[in-house]
Design a protein around this nucleic acid. Structure first.
Length: 294
DNA sequence: CACTTGACCTGTCCGC
DNA sequence: TGCGGACAGGTCAAGT
């Protein structure tokens, strides 16, 4: 579910909501959601203070004053929702239907703070996880070591994108964008949206892209990711921010989930197909096929 | 190595 | 209304 803009939105919310809070207790259901030992939880999480919240790619890191960090990946359906109130409103409460019944059957982990507030980790499909890791060794986790550069870092240039793509010449540009070792944080929504913005057919072979194509793609990626963060991310199904609210970017999306609708640029009907194992949306008129796979 | 496919899970939607 | 199959925003392991 959450891609870079969604995780960034959650990160900003959590920074504001939980920094400085003290953990008083933790409940979790399965070892898959929280694969640390109870001893680790007791020694490094309980009674700890939250010192910082960070994002790298689609992963979150919550630093604690015990020298440990909570590393979190939400995968497809994970949610991190903070609630200050102690009262459960129950189903049907008008203020916030998405989170009014937390915890629910998708709640994997509940972190209680000393002031009575709570952080819920909900995950319908159970793909996501959170785990404790020594803070200084977080960068050594294999996922982070292999991760490509952050596309919204100021020094990320089109030449950087070109060099990251250099080892993926024979695959499609869509598959390359989804590969987190090429660049960090792009998922299915923003791959389709950025390729539409750059007028590149998603099945185009990376090796067939010219410098001018890569320049447009670089600009389009930054544009789309930045706009989505401004809109609070995309809610297709499950995504909510740290306060349980949906994002509005999909209202501004140009191709994603817009199959059978006219392209905003040229009016041609948008196609949905399957590429790199994923649903893929594009305009068959303005996203030109060059040397293409599929 | 580069590249593709299936598995991990639950829920929902669509066609019969 | 019921049932089977396809599909869903991500990553891995295992295959070619």
């Amino acid at each position: 579910m959450p891609e870079l803009p969604e995780v960034e939105t959650i990160k900003r919310g959590l920074t504001r909501l939980i920094t400085g809070k003290h953990v008083s207790g933790v409940e979790f259901d399965t070892l898959k959601s929280f694969p640390n030992s109870m001893a680790d939880v007791d020694n490094f999480l309980i009674n700890s203070k939250i010192t910082d919240v960070k994002r790298r790619g689609k992963a979150l890191t919550i630093d604690l004053d015990t020298g440990y960090s909570l590393v979190i990946h939400l995968k497809m359906t994970g949610q991190l929702v903070y609630r200050a109130d102690k009262v459960n409103f129950g189903a049907g409460h008008p203020t916030d239907s998405l989170i009014n019944a937390l915890p629910d059957k998708s709640t994997r982990v509940t972190i209680n703070f000393t002031d009575g507030s709570r952080l819920y980790f909900n995950d319908q499909r159970k793909f996501g996880w959170m785990r404790l890791h020594p803070t200084v060794f977080v960068p050594d986790i294999e996922f982070f070591k292999k991760l490509g550069p952050e596309p919204l870092e100021k020094d990320f240039s089109w030449q950087d994108l070109k060099s990251r793509l250099a080892s993926r010449q024979r695959t499609s540009i869509k598959a390359a964008l989804l590969d987190q070792t090429v660049i960090a944080g792009v998922g299915n929504i923003y791959a389709d949206e950025s390729l539409w913005g750059a007028k590149i057919y998603p099945g185009t072979t990376v090796g067939a892209l010219k410098d001018s194509d890569i320049k447009r793609l670089h600009a389009s990626l930054i544009n789309v990711l930045t706009l989505s963060i401004d809109r609070g991310g995309s809610t297709d199904r499950n995504y909510v921010n740290a306060e349980g609210k949906k994002g509005s970017y999909l209202e501004f999306a140009n191709v994603f989930r817009r199959q059978n609708q006219p392209c905003p640029r040229c009016g041609t009907i948008i196609i949905k197909t399957r590429l790199a194992g994923r649903g893929t949306h594009y305009c068959p008129h303005c996203q030109v096929m060059k040397s293409a796979l599929v």
